[in-house]
């Protein structure tokens, strides 16, 4: 039983009711049940959360760093995608 044989699990913690689960790090564990316990011990020792998810790191499909410009660059000059681009006329209700 060694760390490099055990798969990696990504850990998500919900800090409190109403908030989303947020990625906090990862743990090595041989299976999901132990991954959840390891995550509890490593990441929620100081009352950081009320709910935990562990996800096999192999199940995550991630964008590649070299694709960053093609993926995210074009959004920079499209200010009309932001609500602040538009003036709200006086007297408009229910907006």
């Amino acid at each position: 039983m060694t760390a490099w044989e055990d798969p990696l699990w990504e850990v998500f913690v919900r800090a409190r009711r109403g908030l989303s689960h947020v990625h906090v790090g990862s743990v090595h564990a041989p299976d999901a049940e132990l991954a959840l316990r390891h995550a509890r011990d490593v990441f929620t020792r100081r009352q950081e959360g009320v709910s935990l998810w562990v996800v096999p790191a192999s199940a995550v499909t991630a964008s590649r760093p070299e694709d960053r410009d093609a993926f995210f660059g074009p959004a920079a000059d499209k200010t009309y995608r932001l609500p602040t681009f538009y003036d709200v006329p006086e007297g408009v209700e229910h907006l």
Binding site: M1, T2, A3, D6, V27, H28, A29, R37, H38, D41, V42, R45
Partner: peptide
């Protein structure tokens, strides 16, 4: 402990 995660668990 065999792995870091277990080290923390046993300490807890």
């Amino acid at each position: 402990a065999p792995v870091l995660e277990e080290d923390v668990a046993l300490a807890n």
